[in-house]
Design a protein around this nucleic acid. Structure first.
Length: 949
RNA sequence: GCAGGAAUGGCGAAAUGGCAAACGCACUCGACUUAGAAUCGAGAAACUGAGAGUUCGAAUCUCUCUUCCUGUACCA
């Protein structure tokens, strides 16, 4: 009987689907275990062999946990809202829902053929209304909440309103906008409804505000900070400019400290935690208020700055404001006005990218105004400069040129005084920025103190005069939540008198309307501005035609019909909570996930996905989870207990060399004699020895059809280059063809065999014959020409030794996510058992369970053949018995000065002294020593003998 | 600049203080075959990026340097 993998794999995939083998139950006596993959965006290109890497790893772990007696939840779904489908829709006019559906079909077929143990009954799609109903619902909850800094927790906004009604807002310490005005209870009660709503917006966890956003004109939408890479859009690489727009934002900054602290409670890699830590960017220091020295006609102004070095307060010799700072226009003197305005105009024109590209050029302008030093009362010139960012801190700095290199460079450039406030430090060449070994000088009450002491004292003194306090600052900004796109979740929001109103939960979902084109309107409104039926009828609670709504007229004539929000939600909305949706299987209509389901599954035990989501999805999810916990919707504080980033599988591109100006291609070994151009060709027509099939190449593209080829030894050898797998390099390998040619089990084993999971590694299809050959050997161990090789004979000592060392190693490997070494272990085990001619069921049965997570199809087939039972999927994992590994003797390596010279077989239970005696008596020892007396003999029983001298 | 990670045969890698290179690809030779593929058997190769230290013993621990990768960047 032959190993017919195509037939076997199809058979078991059908079996698993039909019997719902991997359906998880929400009620079980078994302990739960939740294994999750980052769900894919279903792109039109389908999967290539790089994509399933993480899915295979998580599938092995999920299957292993089932063998270990866990009730495993291992679901899969689609992050199916997104830009590519929309771009495609713009080009072709096809509805994104249609192309998305088609892409999902392809993905499902490709995933199924690899034999994953997903519970598909719990599938989610972020773009389906039954799912985004709950995304909209969570948005409403955020809108209806505020964050109390005293309790460090989010509460319903209704509670805040009660406080306002009774006590005003002075006693409230909330995460809110900076410019909130203080009011009393009677003020509040006298405010109009619109005024009250405006104030509440400043407290809500999702709020509408005019903010400076990252506008990408090419994409026609705003982008969040994590969607911008090196000043251009992550998707497409288009320029990004600053623009003021009214947008929904998420007050994630309220959670900065908890997002930081929470990292200590989860099992993620340090690398990933560091990325999030840097992104949150906590810095501890002080806020200091400087009074602007006013001339008689002016009103008084104050400038707040944030500094991490309040100890250097006496080193301040100027201040710098960001050009966008609101005070600039008010404090600039008449004499400096023209120069300042010219500078502002110049910097505003520079894109973010230009500004980043050219950090070395120092530029700035004096405003003509002076601030007063809080202690010395000395006048301090106020400058503006674009090295100060409007978006960080207060957009203003107290410049201490002796202690900060940027301030130093600025001062040097503009000939500003650089007072030295450090004892015995030379600052003639550069600033002294260190916090260690500092002694403050020329600083009045701070003289002689070190950094720590001086910082404490400076803050204390500032507090005494009411011009500062200790403060912690975070780099993390609130996240823009509006996108001017079509293919995303609509907001459950309509507007009355310009104020946003939430639609009641009972009327969700608000379904994405039809539009005739997916582009912005001529007036520059988002695509939803093209929808004809996109107004909210508050009387009938449904979406109605825009004709019924007359926004220009008075409130009465609206007839209760109001315009709906035209923006849609960003890609990260749906992915910030989907892991809870999988938990629910039966009551998806009534709730995002039922209490019982949430209580049983808690959170994700193991999450596998790419590290590119470090500052996006992985941070936003943690934020939403903390919020939902605060509001009592869930019971956990973190979504993902353990997280592993799988590395990327790279392509191995194939290169042919065309002699310049000719149609002749020269083999790699002969190219040195010619001037050549490198041309990448399809990797799928190159064999393991880097020889290309010239005939196939001629058919592949017309440019090769009548080309000449200079061969070496009868073959054309290609060059190789490891780079990202991409269509443009022709190095994409499709899992479909691998499964067809070698089978899913081979694909699974090979992806794991390539190297450590976390590492980047190149794919080379040629190598798959190694693991494929292993599977054939495995098959032959169990199945002979005519009949099965498996019988009830008692296992030999060697058989047991092989089995148990394999159990030990594989179990350790899976627990450590070291799947590559397990595959080698299987190879060794099968090689040994084949050599031992092992036929014992007591060996071959447990071996199948070990292999089953990795190569489930062949394991199922052989299991059925030898046990006549259905599925291996929940067979108990074999138990390791160390007694089978105990050796009676050890082949000791005998070293001289650390170099191994020969080995010697000695009993395991021999004493140290006896070993030494035996080794010293050995003829080779005597020969090695050549008459010298050894200085020392180190004997480590069971390990090694080392003779020094 | 800052933070994190990596460096071992021709290639992917293993070994986490004790016989460096297990396992696989590629390579060479042989068997089977009309031939190829497949299969089986045999074999060669390479001293852990550089330097120092700790140790009886270092790929593994410590320090210095080099190169590469990832993230981040006028963050006050």
């Amino acid at each position: 009987m032959r190993y017919d993998f195509n037939q076997i794999e199809k058979k078991w995939q059908d079996y698993w689907a039909k019997n719902e083998t991997f359906k998880a139950s929400n009620t079980s006596d078994k302990p739960k275990y939740y294994v999750l993959d980052m769900f894919p965006y279903p792109s039109g290109a389908g999967l290539h062999v790089g994509h399933p890497l993480g899915y295979i790893a998580s599938d092995i772990y999920a299957r292993y946990k089932r063998h270990k007696g866990f009730n495993v939840l291992h679901p899969q779904g689609y992050d199916s809202f997104g830009l590519p489908a929309e771009q495609y829709a713009i080009q072709t006019g096809q509805h994104p829902a249609v192309t998305t559906e088609a892409n999902i079909k392809t993905y499902r077929r490709q995933l199924d053929q690899i034999g994953f143990s997903f519970d598909w009954s719990r599938e989610v799609r972020t773009s389906s209304p039954e799912y985004y109903k709950w995304t909209q619902w969570i948005f409403i909850q955020l809108f209806e909440s505020w964050y109390c800094k005293v309790h460090n927790q989010a509460f319903p906004i209704s509670e805040l309103v009660k406080v306002f009604e009774n006590e005003g807002n002075e006693i409230i310490d909330a995460a809110c906008d900076d410019n909130v005005e203080v009011f009393t209870a009677s003020d509040w009660n006298s405010f109009s409804s619109v005024q009250q709503q405006e104030i509440l917006l400043q407290y809500r966890l999702t709020y509408l505000a005019e903010t400076e956003v990252n506008w990408c004109p090419e994409l026609g939408t705003v982008l969040a900070n994590d969607e911008i890479v090196n000043g251009v859009s992550e998707r497409g690489g288009y320029p990004v400019v600053r623009k003021k727009m009214t947008q929904w934002s998420m007050r994630i900054s309220a959670y900065a400290e908890r997002l930081l602290q929470g990292l200590d409670t989860i099992d993620w890699t340090d690398a990933l935690k560091d990325i999030q830590k840097n992104w949150i960017g906590k810095s501890v220091g002080a806020s200091v208020t400087f009074n602007v020295i006013q001339s008689e006609s002016e009103e008084s102004h104050k400038i707040d700055v944030f500094t991490t070095r309040p100890d250097t307060i006496y080193g301040v010799s100027f201040m710098t404001l960001a050009p966008e700072h609101e005070l600039v226009s008010q404090i600039t003197t008449e004499a400096q006005k023209a120069e300042v305005e010219a500078y502002i105009e110049k910097t505003a024109k520079r894109s973010e990218r230009d500004r980043m590209a050219d950090v070395k050029t120092i530029s700035g302008v004096f405003t003509g105004a002076y601030a007063e030093h809080p202690f010395s009362k000395a006048p301090i010139p106020i400058w503006i400069g674009d090295y100060v960012l409007a978006s960080y801190g207060t957009g203003a700095v107290m410049a201490v040129p002796c202690g900060d290199q940027r301030d130093y460079d600025f001062a040097k450039h503009f000939n500003i005084d650089i007072p030295n406030i450090f004892e015995a430090v030379d600052i003639s060449e550069e600033a002294f920025a260190s916090k260690d070994n500092v002694t403050i000088a020329n600083s009045d009450f701070l003289n002689g103190m070190n950094y720590k002491k001086a910082t404490k004292r400076a803050i204390y003194e500032l507090e005494q005069i009411g011009q500062g306090e200790g403060k912690t600052n975070y780099r993390l900004r609130d996240a823009v939540f509006s996108r001017q796109r079509y293919w995303g979740e609509p907001f459950p929001v309509y507007y009355v008198n310009g104020m946003p109103q939430m639609i009641d939960k009972a009327h969700l979902p608000i379904v994405l309307p039809e539009v005739e084109k997916y582009l912005p309107t001529e007036e520059g409104e988002p695509p939803l501005g093209r929808a004809d039926v996109w107004a909210w009828d508050t009387k009938n609670n449904k979406v109605v035609s825009n004709d019924l709504c007359h926004s220009e007229q008075s409130e009465e004539s609206h007839n209760g019909v109001y315009p709906l929000e035209l923006n849609t939600m960003p890609g990260w909305a749906g992915s910030s909570w989907y892991f809870f949706r999988y938990m629910e299987d039966a009551m998806r209509d009534e709730t995002f996930a039922s209490e019982d389901a949430l209580k049983y599954w808690e959170n994700v035990d193991l999450y596998i996905g790419g590290s590119e989501h470090a500052t996006g999805h992985l941070l936003y999810s943690r934020f939403w989870v903390k919020f939902m916990k605060d509001r009592g919707f869930i019971g956990v504080d973190e979504p993902f207990k353990k997280l592993i980033n799988q590395g990327m599988i790279l392509g191995t591109s194939a290169i042919v060399y065309r002699i310049s100006g000719t149609k002749t291609y020269v083999s790699k070994g002969l190219k040195e004699n010619h001037k050549v151009e490198e041309i990448r060709v399809d990797v799928n027509i190159v064999n393991a020895s880097d020889e290309i099939d010239v005939e196939k190449l001629k058919q592949w593209q017309p440019q090769f059809k009548d080309a000449e080829f200079i061969l070496e030894e009868g073959n054309y050898i290609v060059g190789r280059e490891v780079e990202k797998m991409s269509k443009r390099w022709f190095n994409v390998v499709n899992p479909d063809s691998i499964c067809e040619q070698y089978g899913a089990d081979s694909l699974r084993l090979y992806e794991m065999f390539l190297g450590p999971l976390e590492q980047y590694k190149p794919w080379n299809t040629a190598g798959i014959t190694g693991v494929h050959g292993f599977l054939k050997k495995l098959w032959k161990l169990y199945v002979g020409q005519e009949s099965l090789n498996v019988n009830d004979v008692e296992p030999t000592k060697d058989n047991l030794k092989t089995l148990h060392k394999t159990i030990k190693k594989v179990e350790e490997d899976i627990e450590n996510f070291s799947f590559n070494t397990s595959v080698s272990t299987f190879m060794i085990a099968v090689n040994e058992l084949t050599a031992q001619k092992c036929t014992s069921k007591k060996i071959l049965e447990p071996l199948l369970v070990l292999i089953s997570p990795y190569a489930p199809h062949i394991a199922e087939e052989l299991w059925q053949k030898i046990r006549n039972e259905s599925s291996i999927s929940t067979a108990p994992f074999p138990k390791f018995d160390p007694s089978h590994l105990i050796e009676s003797s050890k082949n000791y390596p005998i070293s001289f000065n650390g170099k191994m010279r020969f080995t010697m077989e000695l009993p395991m239970d021999m004493s140290k002294d006896d070993i030494e005696a035996a080794v010293m008596a050995h003829e080779k020892t005597i020969a090695q020593l050549d008459g010298r007396a050894p200085k020392k003999v180190i004997v480590v029983p069971g390990k090694i003998v080392n003779i020094v001298g």
